[in-house]
Design a protein around this nucleic acid. Structure first.
Length: 264
DNA sequence: ATGCATGTTACATG
DNA sequence: ACATGTAACATGCA
């Protein structure tokens, strides 16, 4: 599930806990989600701290606590954040739960590809100061985008869009959506785009990121039927532009959906 | 039962 | 340094 806007949505699920003190921490410490940090450290460190705020960057989330503690969360493939009533029992895949005045702030992840991190730092942790330029930031302009295409000219576009160090937050459905809107086939190489196509891809990239944030981030509303999103999930879907059956195949190792009459 | 999944990383190979 | 392919991770769903 979680790409750029879904991550922003899940991050906001814990907003009600901002300002609250963590009175207890429960962990399933033996799970893979704690591969980079000891669960006991997380429990010890966060107990008694106050949640101050949160932010996202691409697919990452960061929660700031009092006294210089920062909790990093990556949702992997099936992770989510939610709040449970204080009286509610925790469930099987609730790997981390922070007890606060508004209930349990829960990180749940059946497949455990997600990850918990802990930083102790006076200001923003160093790891978070070194993250790539965000797509919707002012710095991510057409010139910056062009340099990426030049540097990675031999890349297949679908794969390139999934590189988090270049396009933070873009995941499988967004990459398909971006290429579809730009009318470019997913298996094309960056170097073979003409000027018009490069511009179309840049515009589409920003449009899809903005649209995702507009529709999905506030309350998980699906994008409109005019988007590929609503048609791409299983075989037999219809292209909203052409009315013909969408193609589905593997490109760069990921399931990819495109419209052969629409994209060139 | 079989195949597939909105993610990332390590490793081998070119 | 880049690119590609594969396996691995662990579980639920159709």
């Amino acid at each position: 599930m979680p790409e750029l806007a879904e991550v922003a949505y899940y991050c906001s699920r814990w907003n009600s806990g901002i300002g609250s003190r963590v009175t207890a921490v429960e962990t399933h410490g033996q799970t893979r989600c704690f591969r980079d940090v000891d669960a006991d450290c997380v429990r010890t460190d966060l107990t008694g701290k106050r949640l101050i705020g949160s932010r996202t960057h691409g697919k990452r989330m960061l929660f700031e606590f009092s006294e210089g503690s920062w909790l990093g969360v990556h949702l992997g493939m099936t992770g989510r954040l939610l709040v449970r009533e204080a009286s509610e029992a925790l469930e099987k895949h609730d790997h981390l739960a922070l007890k606060t005045g508004v209930g349990w702030l829960v990180f749940n992840d059946p497949r455990q590809f997600g990850k918990i991190e802990l930083f102790e730092s006076d200001g923003l942790p160093a790891e978070w100061q070194a993250l790539p330029t965000e797509i919707l930031s002012k710095k991510f302009d057409y010139e910056y985008f062009g340099k990426i295409l030049e540097r990675r000219s031999r890349s297949v576009l679908k794969s390139l869009l999934l590189v988090q160090g270049l396009f933070p937050g873009v995941g499988n459905w967004m990459a398909d959506e971006i290429l579809w809107r730009a009318r470019i086939r997913p298996d094309r190489r960056a170097s073979l785009l003409d000027e018009k196509e490069r511009k179309a891809l840049f515009d589409s990239l920003r449009f899809v990121c903005r649209g995702a944030m507009k529709y999905v981030a506030p309350d998980y509303t699906d994008p409109p039927k005019t988007w590929l999103f609503r048609h791409r999930w299983k075989a037999g879907g219809i292209c909203p532009k052409t009315g013909t059956i969408l193609e589905r195949d593997e490109v760069g190792g990921r399931t990819t959906c495109w419209s052969s009459a629409w994209q060139r």
